[in-house]
């Protein structure tokens, strides 16, 4: 696929389905080139008519020219929109369910409610047009947990290494700086940390395999969970 800074319609269409022009999850040389071309030609971008181009352009502008130079020169791929669309819809569904769950009980009269709803929708639309790019940010959580073993003699470094080596998941990054926290009477527990992507990793995906080593581990408990 090729792009040009003058054909905003094609750009808009492509960016509606992809984060970057590269079509992958990383920006590429083509992103930098087109963005710079837009900048040089001083093309005015309208957030209302081309929201995705607008968001992408503002985002690419956040990188320094040095950083942009490091981006790979790849041929942009176009994944048909159909493969991505269902994902978005599924998300919306869960959201509306949540609204039902903990939404307000309808005590006010319908008229006021309707007016408020209308106002809200208008405001939301304006907001979405303004900063669509934020939606693309991946939510991550810092997880710190304690692994308790049976005996003081157990080598916690060996256990930690085993955990790093065995548990490798997409969306999980180990901090690889585990600590030994004293419990009492010469006993230590292993404290480890990692960063997980909210959508991809369940805490059980990490803990269940560790707890299944019944000879070595008696329990795993979360110390803290914190937004990154």
């Amino acid at each position: 696929m090729t792009f040009s800074a003058t054909d905003l319609t094609t750009l808009e269409k492509h960016l509606a389905a992809h984060t970057y022009l590269s079509g992958t999850d990383k920006p590429a040389k083509v992103d930098a080139d087109i963005a710079n071309e837009l900048k040089e030609k001083k093309v005015t971008l309208n957030a209302a008519t081309h929201p995705n181009v607008y968001a992408w352009f503002s985002f690419i502008g956040l990188f320094t020219p040095e950083a942009q130079k490091t981006w790979a020169d790849v041929t942009p791929v176009h994944v048909p929109a159909a493969t991505q669309a269902p994902k978005k819809e599924a998300k919306k569904e869960t959201k509306s369910e949540e609204v039902d769950l903990f939404g307000d009980d309808d005590e006010e009269d319908a008229e006021a409610e309707a007016l408020r709803e209308k106002k809200r929708l208008e405001a939301v639309a304006a907001k979405e047009a303004r900063d669509g790019k934020k939606k693309k940010a991946i939510a991550k959580t810092i997880l710190v947990f304690n692994v308790k073993v049976f005996e003081a003699e157990q080598d916690l470094d060996v256990l930690a290494k085993k955990i790093y080596d065995t548990i490798q998941l997409e969306g999980l990054v180990w901090n690889k700086e585990h600590k030994k926290i004293p419990v009492a009477f010469g006993m230590f527990m292993l404290q480890m940390g990692c960063i997980v992507e909210d959508e991809k990793v369940n805490t059980d995906d990490i803990f269940e395999p560790i707890q299944s080593w019944e000879e070595e581990v008696q329990s795993v408990d979360i110390e803290t969970m914190q937004k990154l």
Partner: peptide, 18 residues
Amino acid sequence: AEKGGFEAGFCQGGQTKE
């Protein structure tokens, strides 16, 4: 307090309210 931000976030419910 952002115009639209409040309406999109808090009013829409979801996780924070939960």
